[in-house]
Amino acid sequence: MNNIQQKTKELLESGACTLIIGYEKGTGGKARPVFVRKAEHAAKLIFDESCDQNIAGYLYRQEIKNESKKAIVANNHTLKSIVELASENQIHEGDFMVLAFTAEGEIIELKSFEEIEKHVATLYHGLNDEDKATMQKIEAMTMEERWGFWENEFSKCIKCYACRASCPMCYCPTCTVEINQPQWIPVPSHTLGNLEWHVMRAMHLAGRCITCGQCAKSCPLDLPIHLLTYKVALDSEQYFDSVAGTSVCANNVLATFKTEDHENFIR
C-alpha cells in the first residue's frame, strides 16, 4: 500500500505526472475517487479491496482530457473499461499512464494498450457469486414471475440517471433519453417508460458492458439493473464469443456477424 503512495509521489515529484486519478478513504469503510496533484498529497492515496469503483470514466471528461501528464490507478474493472473505451475510440494510447497491480499486490505500470490487454487477459471475467446466484434465480422463474419481479423493480426507478452517469461506457454527449423528436423515452417516470429506458440501456451496452456493477451500486433505490446488461453480456459471449473490455481492436458484437450465426428462433 505504501507502494502506491511511494510510486505516485515519485511521479509527481519528478514531474512525470501532474495529476493522479486514484482512490482515497471515504466514509463507512468505502473508498472514493480522488484527484491528487501535489506530491505531498500522495499519502492520501490507497489501494485495497474497498477500491472497487470503476473510475475509467474520468479519462474522457473534457476537463481532464486536456491535462497532458496524468496517471490513473486502475482496478480490474477500470482496466477492462479502458480497453473497451479504447476500442470505441474514446481514449487514446499515450494520453495517460496506467498504474495497476499484480495478483500479489505489486504495483506495475502498464505502458501500452497491448500491455493492458495482456494484463486483462489474466483476470477473472465472470460474475461474482452473488450476481451469479441472482441471475440463476431469475432465470429459474416462470415468465410471469420474471415480469412481476421486473415490473416491481422498474416501478421504483425515478429516472435520476445515476446509473447512466456512473457507467464509463455511457459517454454519449446527447443520450437517446434526451432526444425528443421522436420522444424515444417518455419524460415522466412510470413503469412503462422505465422499462423502455432499461431495455434501451441494456441494448446499448451490448458487447460493451464489462460487468463491473457500478450502475447498480450507484442507484439510489438499489435496483439490480446491472443484471440486464449482464444478461446481454453473457449472451454476447455465449452466442457470439464476444467479451467486452478484452481487445482494443475487436469489433462490437452487434457491428459484425457471421453467416453461420445462431438462428433457430427464426421461421
Binding site: 475510440n89 474514446q90 469489433n251
Partner: peptide, 8 residues
C-alpha cells in the same frame, strides 16, 4: 460520439 462502430 466518434465510436466509429458504424464503419464496421
Amino acid at each position: 460520439t466518434g465510436c466509429f462502430m458504424c464503419i464496421q
